[in-house]
């Protein structure tokens, strides 16, 4: 029974990591953007919602819609237009440093303009528990797993089965050739940023009722998503999903059966092992680059 509960809890946490890791991976694939503000991207939508409720007096459902729209605009369009586009022409490193600065800006901004303290965030569903085979399973956890998996499967379907999705894949694989073939590369890249914004907003709405909304939440989530993407494979959606789920389960198993004190080290050991023995990630594709 204990193992079942640990696995469900781990998969729920891992599903959130997977959502964030998929967005991380998509940005890298289409625009070589390593977004070190990805964790803060998960933190911010919750505050858009809380802000809409507090300052706009909106009901929760409307605030969620507003939060999603603001996420698409700020974390999708504005992020691309104001930061990525101007910085990317100077190379990957300046862009990486810019995203680190952006992470600090978001953190300090929320701390200054909203609150330094954690804030309760309403749950989208009931807090009830189900008893399955003697194990108590939280409805919250089940909803997180179902919603996250559905979102990622829908994304996979979109990328593989629709014309726009295939154009996005073409852009990721070879933008120059895609452009010659008539793909509107800039638009495809923008779509990727919007998808990432939607994924992080979804992750934010799912996890904030449990973690509480706090300006510093992105530190843990960003690091976990980064590790998940590398462990799973930085160039495959399925790799990011596997990495996220694996990380969540391993974290819970380690804390339950090894040590809660060293739980933070286990994902890092996993990361080191993958880099040493399978640098392309567990489900990633080996890539070679000419110098």
């Amino acid at each position: 029974m204990a193992l079942l509960q640990i696995l469900i809890s781990g998969l729920a946490t891992g599903a959130i990591y997977a959502l964030v890791a998929v967005g991380f991976m998509l940005l890298w694939q289409t625009s070589q953007t390593i977004n070190f503000a990805q964790g803060e991207f998960v933190m911010l939508p919750a505050f858009f919602v809380l802000g809409a409720m507090k300052f706009g007096g909106m009901p929760f459902w409307l605030a969620i819609v507003v939060g999603l729209l603001l996420s698409l605009i700020v974390l999708g369009v504005l992020f691309k237009v104001l930061l990525v586009d101007p910085m990317l022409r100077h190379g990957v490193l300046p862009l990486v440093i810019s995203t680190i600065a952006l992470a600090l800006f978001f953190k300090e901004g929320v701390k200054t303009w909203y609150a330094a303290e954690a804030q309760p965030f309403p749950a989208l569903w009931s807090n009830d528990n189900l008893e399955i085979g003697g194990a108590v399973i939280s409805v919250q956890n089940l909803v997180i797993i179902v919603v996250a998996v559905t979102a990622v499967l829908a994304l996979q379907w979109f990328l593989a089965r629709t014309r726009t999705g295939r154009c996005m894949q073409a852009t990721a694989q070879n933008p120059a050739l895609a452009r010659i073939l008539g793909v509107r590369v800039e638009r495809m890249i923008l779509y990727t940023f919007l998808i990432n914004a939607a994924l992080v907003a979804l992750a934010s709405f799912l996890i904030s009722p449990i973690y509480l909304a706090k300006f510093s939440n992105g530190e843990t989530l960003g690091m976990a998503a980064f590790i998940a993407a590398i462990v799973g494979g930085f160039n495959q959606v399925r790799g990011a999903i596997a990495g996220g789920l694996l990380l969540g389960v391993v974290d819970n198993l380690a804390a339950s059966y090894i040590s809660t004190q060293y739980r933070g080290a286990i994902p890092l050991f996993l990361l080191i092992a993958v880099i040493l023995f399978r640098p392309q990630g567990l489900l990633g594709r080996a890539e070679e680059r000419s110098v």
């Binding site: 640990i6 781990g10 729920a12 946490t13 973690y211 706090k214 380690a254 804390a255 339950s256 809660t260």
Partner: peptide
Amino acid sequence: VSTESGQVDFAADVVKVKN
């Protein structure tokens, strides 16, 4: 069970004390 300052995920800790 030791936890970390600022820790956000307590799922495993709760499972451990529950069991």
